[in-house]
């Protein structure tokens, strides 16, 4: 298929349109993904999450620069929230990365959540496949960053980086939001600010409470100071890049990469089955008016939802 070839050749126009088609659920996009799928699985997917104002975008921008110095190609997906009132969105994370706009080794794409919960867009999974097939060595995904339950990233990334800053009271916020459990690496950003020591100690304490870590990987805590203090920030950036690589290597060495990929595979399969099996049934029930009739039966207490579900399942699953 021509489009597959174009994606694999890294044709930017094709890739960006394909991601758009995925987002807009244009039917042809699914077929393209089918063709692309065998060519995926090579990229190292890194997720960035954390509290608002933590400096995720700026950090990713610097990481991209560092990866480029190491001669790696990078795809970046930036997720921003869709306004629930208007359906519109301002996708502004890109601003921080515009210096890479002319670098053919970097592809940056902004995605709106379009109502999806969990800090990502529904299209993210397939968009990662596309950038992977495009041949990017690394695919970096930035979650919305509202400090809410942004744990969805764990299903897509090999390495999850959680970015925190001192003095915002995020410590507790983050624990509540369950973000800490998904971290493979912590970054304390703006660590020259007051409260950085306290945040570090709290994280250390929390980690000490854990019984064991999968693969023996205890999430390291990296302190990144003021990014304009070039020397010290450069060092932190090196450390972050090396640690991200080390984490991936650990997954490989401990044969855990499969587990990570399995999680994504299960999720995708689940989603695909949902789309393939349940969606048509539901559509038919609505269109034939059966849904309404069944609801009326419930209102009259003639039956219960479970009995009805069993009946529907019995009918369709036999087919």
């Amino acid at each position: 298929m021509e489009i597959t070839k174009k994606v694999r050749d890294g044709d930017v126009r094709t890739v960006s349109r394909l991601i758009r088609n995925i987002e807009d659920r244009i039917p042809g996009a699914k077929d393209t993904i089918k063709h692309i799928f065998p060519h995926t699985g090579k990229a190292h997917v890194i997720g960035f999450t954390g509290s608002p104002g933590a400096g995720k975008s700026t950090l990713i921008d610097c990481l991209v620069a560092e990866l480029r110095k190491r001669d790696k190609t990078v795809g970046v997906l930036l997720v921003d929230p869709t306004s629930p009132f208007t359906g519109g969105a301002i996708l502004g994370d890109r601003i921080r990365m515009q210096r890479h706009a002319l670098d053919p080794g970097v592809f940056v794409r902004s995605l709106a959540t379009r109502g999806a919960l969990g800090g990502l867009s529904k299209a993210v999974g397939d968009a990662i496949h596309v950038l992977d097939a495009m041949g990017k060595d690394f695919v970096i995904v930035e979650t919305v960053g509202t400090g809410q339950q942004e744990v969805e990233i764990i299903n897509h990334a090999h390495t999850v980086v959680v970015v925190l800053i001192p003095g915002m009271g995020d410590e507790i916020q983050a624990i509540k939001a369950g973000i800490l459990e998904i971290a493979d690496i912590f970054v304390i950003n703006k660590a020259d600010r007051d409260g950085a020591g306290k945040l570090y100690r709290e994280l250390m304490y929390m980690l000490s409470m854990a019984d064991e870590f999968p693969g023996g990987w205890k999430p390291p805590i990296i302190r990144a100071e003021n990014m304009f203090a070039a020397d010290s920030f450069g060092k932190s950036l090196h450390e972050l890049t090396d640690t991200i690589n080390a984490h991936y290597q650990n997954l490989v060495d401990k044969h855990l990469l499969g587990d990570r990929i399995l999680r994504k595979a299960m999720l995708e399969l689940n989603e695909a089955l949902h789309n393939a099996i349940l969606d048509p049934v539901l559509t038919e029930l609505v269109e034939t008016g059966d849904m309404r009739r069944m609801a009326d039966m419930l209102l009259k207490k003639e039956t219960d939802p479970y009995t009805l579900a069993d009946e529907v399942a019995g009918k369709y699953l036999r087919e």
Binding site: T86, G88, A112
Partner: peptide, 16 residues
Amino acid sequence: LARCFRDAGYETIYTG
């Protein structure tokens, strides 16, 4: 303008 487009329901990318 970026805010206006968001409120009009568009996905708006601002470059800075």
